[in-house]
Simulated assay, not measured.
Amino acid sequence: MQTTIGPFDPATKSVPVTFVHDAPSGETITHDRNVNACLDESGGFDAEATAARVEEVARGVAVKIAVGAITNPPPPAPQEGFDVD
């Protein structure tokens, strides 16, 4: 499981995370979601604790990918009247 953690959003107290993992089918699945950030005693962003929290979430995402609950979205269908090259 490969994870990329984005910048802390103080308004939502979360970080955007991209999870990339290979499904049993061999397809590489990319899953984006926000993860609640960890804050320190003074209410500031705790990057180390948040990274540990993301690892915990990643274990759950990996299981969901393995059972097919998380997949890549289908490609958008071409719209009538538009040229698709």
Rank of each mutant, 00 (worst) to 15 (best):
K64V: 00
V54K: 03
A11S: 14
G43T: 08
E41R: 13
T28A: 06
F19E: 02
V17E: 03
D85E: 14
I65L: 02
E56N: 09
E80R: 14
R59A: 15
T28L: 04
D83Y: 10
Q79A: 15
E56F: 06
N36D: 13
P24N: 05
P7I: 04
E80S: 14
F82C: 07
A66M: 11
A52M: 08
A58N: 08
Q2H: 12
A47I: 11
D40E: 04
P76N: 07
P75G: 08
I5C: 05
V17K: 05
E55H: 07
P7D: 13
V84G: 08
P24Q: 04
A66Y: 08
H21G: 12
T18K: 13
V17L: 02
A49L: 06
V84C: 11
A62D: 12
I29R: 01
K13I: 11
P73H: 09
G43Q: 05
Q79L: 15
A37Q: 06
S14L: 05
P76S: 11
V63C: 01
A62E: 11
A47H: 11
P75T: 10
P78W: 08
V57E: 03
Q2R: 14
V61A: 02
G81C: 07
H31S: 03
R33M: 15
I70M: 04
T18Q: 12
G81V: 10
G6M: 05
T4P: 00
T50I: 01
A23H: 11
A58P: 05
G81D: 04
G43A: 05
E48H: 07
I65V: 15
N72K: 07
N72G: 06
V61E: 01
T50P: 01
V67D: 15
A69V: 04
P10E: 10
N36I: 10
E48C: 00
P76E: 10
H31E: 02
T71Y: 00
T30C: 00
T71S: 12
C38F: 12
D32G: 09
V17Q: 02
V17M: 02
G43W: 05
A69M: 13
A62P: 01
I5E: 03
V61P: 03
E27D: 11
H31C: 01
T4R: 13
V20A: 11
K64T: 04
D40A: 04
A47N: 10
F45I: 05
P74Q: 11
P24D: 04
T30A: 09
S14F: 05
I29V: 15
N34S: 14
V67E: 12
R59L: 13
F45V: 04
K64M: 15
V20C: 03
A62I: 07
N36R: 14
T12P: 02
A77P: 13
G44Q: 14
E48K: 12
E48T: 13
Q2T: 12
I65R: 01
K64Y: 12
D32S: 11
P7F: 00
P10Q: 10
P7E: 14
R33Y: 00
C38S: 15
L39S: 08
V54Q: 02
T28G: 00
T28C: 00
A47M: 10
A77Y: 11
A62G: 10
R53S: 06
I29Q: 01
E41G: 14
H31W: 12
E41P: 00
Q79I: 15
D46W: 03
M1C: 06
G43S: 06
D85K: 14
V54E: 02
V57R: 04
